[in-house]
Design a protein around this nucleic acid. Structure first.
Lengths: 150, 150
DNA sequence: CTGTTATTGCAAATCATTTGCAATAAGCTT
DNA sequence: AAGCTTATTGCAAATGATTTGCAATAACAG
């Protein structure tokens, strides 16, 4: 399978764009990202490889990749304070955020597929995307909460 | 049961605040809202009752109500371009947005409850809130799309 | 009715994101 | 490898949404 960098290069060239050094840096950061990177994270990390890369370029690159369908913005909390970017198609993974410690716990469930099918049948909708964000208390913070209540 | 206005008055007084004329207008708009009202909708509608109510006051009132746990911000699309406000606890209704005509179709499903239970059991998470936003094509726009493809 | 102080409207400030422009560099053509 | 075209860059300024400082106003406790 092609690397994410190759995928991105192809997609960008396809639409008459160019793969630049700055874009490579950002694409590679997105590929190797284990966690969630927001715009400022990406800018900060990219600067370590290219002192002079500008925030505007990070924004523009993210928009190019999003238009190409390679990445998607996601939001952490249900109030969606914080937007970060991740590769699409990296498996349908959804996220649970702990209200207290802000930890993000990924999960996936066939129930979401099922929900899509239900809606297709019942309401005749063609569901192209599902955004499911849960929040609440992680196991650790539940324990801590129980202590405080005493 | 107390009206939403009474609920709001009590909650605001509880924290040493005051129920003003402007706040009453906004609270009533939120109570009677059938659809989704965003900040500008609320400002526009509120002006019909009070010519001089300012946008800043609408923002401040929404923040007060949100802090009191009476309303919650919601987002229409998975990209969450548009934020609107609705009362909490007004039944768990989720929304599907058509990518083409932007129409919003509300739905609800037991599958989401089921998902919460699954996660409680499997990952020991206490799920306090679920944000589920779907998007895709509504029946009408599916037909239109089919025509264009020919 | 009076006094205290939370709230208001306004304008200016802030924050995230986008954009205009001149300089640079990607990558096709030779 | 060199030249040419034009997409991309960095910067600074613009934009759009939301917040805030301040003096004037109005809630509501006494």
């Amino acid at each position: 399978m092609p690397s994410f960098l190759e995928q991105a290069s192809d997609a960008i060239r396809q639409s008459g764009g160019r793969m630049t050094g700055q874009r490579q840096i950002i694409v590679n950061l997105l590929e190797s990202a284990t966690g969630q990177l927001d715009v400022d994270d990406l800018h900060r990390l990219a600067r370590k490889q290219d002192q002079h890369i500008s925030l505007a370029t990070v924004y523009r690159t993210l928009n190019v990749l999003e238009d190409a369908g390679l990445i998607q913005p996601r939001y952490q909390s249900p109030e969606h304070e914080h937007k970060y970017y991740e590769r699409v198609g990296s498996g349908q993974v959804y996220h649970f955020t702990c209200r207290v410690c802000r930890k993000i716990i990924p999960f996936h469930s066939e129930l979401i597929q099922e929900l899509k099918h239900h809606l297709s049948k019942q309401l005749d909708l063609e569901v192209l995307n599902a955004c499911v964000c849960l929040d609440g208390l992680c196991p650790e913070c539940q324990k801590q909460q129980a202590q405080t209540d005493r």
